[in-house]
Design a binder for these strands. Structure first.
Length: 533
RNA sequence: GUCCCUAUCGUCUAGAGGCCUAGGACACCGGGUUUUCAUCCCGGCAACGGGGGUUCGAAUCCCCCUGGGGAUGCCA
């Protein structure tokens, strides 16, 4: 059967970096296996699901190039089917009504199958014994067995498990005598009778467990006696996530479920649900979580964890996609910057790590810079133009001048925020780095050189990069300065700061007239800060 | 509290008993190129959490501890 995976977000907030990483891994796996990548919107939480969140989700997915196959399924529209499945389980005695709270309808519970031995995903571990606190009576009913274990510190701690987990349970007393034999009372208990057993010190039974092979984590298992029957239909008759999720996975013929680590505990129950519903059990792969730069799980407070924010901060989709892929996965060799095609080709779930990965903005920025550096000029221009206003660059972004500046600065742009530093090309309004001004202009010869350069400027006709640089050299020579000594002072005059593109191009781009004014302005500024000091 | 998962440089990772005096990348620090800056090149700093085993040999296997994460809902 060909691979079918799904991404099933619930649109209750903006898509988060961890969610989209799950989508990416599903997508990568599907494309690698030449299978299908389906999208299911789990909007059953009517209170918190919003259209806005759904729109944002689509926007993020298409931005990242996560194309999906087939029709989108909206889970809320399938509620009748979920309820129908619940009724079927009830009719087959695979579910039962629990206790109703005051004035409410009873919720429907999924029963961990009593005949679990017949299920391939369940295996017998062997005899087991649990020490229990004798002061706490053991309660036995169709809903399960409840008792109190003794914690490491010796305190009685409440515990309970489903009936199926204790099929041949014997409650043993202090003298080793059997206080209660479940097998002997099986019919009565299943029939609804409740038993309370006092003074038990030990539970003896055959332990069985649900197990499966996780494609990332390896073999995982959970004892039946640690599982509880789970509500699948609420008192208000709405289906619960577990039911809806499993039903829809059946409906969509999902073959591989790739999701976050936080779902491993649910998996055992889901496996049983698949089985009881009469569907084949899919393969599972649980992805490690992504933690923030403090090493903590992302929470609502980590505002910058929303995918859309990365876009608006100027991260390229390719860079973010590439970076996220590297969080918890590597191709097994030294490649890091990879094309989508390369990632699809090398992607193996088996190579996904199993421990949480910490998000590193530095590395993302570096990768982003690499992607920016190789953008086609036209693309870079369009991208940069989109951020000019936001970063107060007073330029007509369709102008020739803007294009020249952008291309000159492309190789030193790692994030959109760097565009803020282009302002001096377009406006005389910029701040000086005073520390640098003091350092660079403290020398009389330098200030003289600047004056000299200014006058020389008036005499030149051509002021292209090469000529500008030539003029600096000849000025230095004329006033007796070593070569290069005028570079930084002129850069300060031009931009107020000490770093930028090459000096000739920078001056030429600003132009003769403006440079003349800016040299005067720098000199005046220097005199002012010296006077103040 | 209980159950489960997990643990290599600050960070992302390579490593599946000898190829490891542990490799790459980011960050950081030097040096070179660029008469500035960035790119680029060269170099440096820096890790197997601790303790027990198993083995001729352990980052790799087992156990314990510690740290981190998850789960313990009529949330998803």
């Amino acid at each position: 059967m060909s691979v079918r995976v799904r991404f099933a977000p619930s649109p209750t907030g903006k898509v988060h970096i961890g969610n989209i990483r799950t989508a990416i891994f599903n997508w990568l796996f599907a494309r690698h296996e030449k299978g299908e990548f389906l999208l299911r919107v789990e909007d059953t939480d009517r209170e918190r699901s919003t259209q806005e969140a759904i729109d944002a989700l689509f926007a993020c997915m298409s931005w990242l190039g996560l194309d999906y196959d087939g029709e989108i399924i909206y889970q809320a529209s399938r509620t009748p089917a979920h309820l129908e499945a619940a009724q079927k389980l009830l009719a087959e005695n695979k579910a039962y009504y629990g206790k109703a709270a005051d004035g409410e309808k009873a919720p429907l519970l999924f029963r961990i199958p009593l005949n679990a031995d017949d299920i391939p995903a369940v295996r017998t571990v062997g005899p087991a014994e649990i020490e229990i606190a004798p002061e706490q009576p053991v309660q036995i009913s169709a809903a399960g067995v409840s008792f109190a274990i003794i914690s490491r510190k010796g305190n009685p701690t409440p515990a309970e498990g489903c009936l199926a987990g204790f099929k041949d349970l014997k409650v043993l007393g202090n003298d080793g005598s059997c206080q209660f034999d479940l097998a002997a009372n099986w019919g009565a208990v299943v029939g609804g009778q409740e038993f309370t057993v006092e003074n038990g010190v030990r539970l003896a039974f055959t332990r069985r467990e649900v197990f499966y092979q996780d494609m990332i984590k390896g073999e995982l298992a959970k004892p039946l006696d640690s599982m509880k029957d789970q509500v699948i239909v609420r008192s208000d008759s709405t289906p619960i996530f577990h039911l809806a999720n499993v039903c829809d996975d059946c409906y969509q013929n999902i073959t591989h479920i790739i999701r976050g680590d936080d779902h491993v505990e649910n998996t055992y129950r889901h496996i049983l649900l698949f089985h009881q519903l009469g569907y084949p059990i899919p393969q599972y792969a649980h992805l490690p979580m992504i933690v923030n730069q403090q090493g903590k799980p992302y929470s609502k407070r980590d505002g910058d964890a929303f995918v859309g924010d990365f876009r608006s901060k100027g991260y390229l989709a390719e860079a973010l996609f590439n970076y996220l892929t590297l969080l918890g996965w590597s191709p097994g060799d030294d490649r890091e910057k990879m094309t989508k095609a390369e990632m699809v080709e090398s992607f193996r779930l088996e190579r996904v790590k199993s421990a949480p990965a910490q998000f590193d903005l530095n590395k993302l920025q570096n990768l982003n810079g690499m992607y920016i550096a190789e953008m086609a000029s036209a693309d870079f221009l369009a991208w940069a133009a989109g951020f000019a206003a936001e970063y107060q660059v007073p330029a007509d972004t369709s102008s020739r001048q803007f294009a020249d500046v952008a291309l000159l600065m492309q190789s030193r742009t790692r994030q959109a925020e760097n565009i803020r530093e282009w302002g001096y090309f377009f406006s005389d309004e910029f701040e000086y780095n005073d520390k640098a001004v003091k350092k660079q202009l403290g020398n009389d010869a330098i200030r003289f050189g600047l004056e000299h350069f200014k006058s020389a400027l008036a005499t030149v006709l051509e002021f292209a990069p090469a000529e500008a640089e030539q003029l600096i050299r000849s000025t230095e020579k004329a006033v007796g300065l070593d070569e290069g000594k005028l570079n930084q002072p002129l850069r300060l005059a031009a931009s107020g700061v000490t770093s930028g593109a090459d000096i000739g191009s920078t001056l030429a781009m600003i132009g003769k007239e403006k440079m003349t004014g800016r040299i005067d302005r720098l000199l005046a500024h220097f005199n002012r800060i010296i006077a103040e000091a």
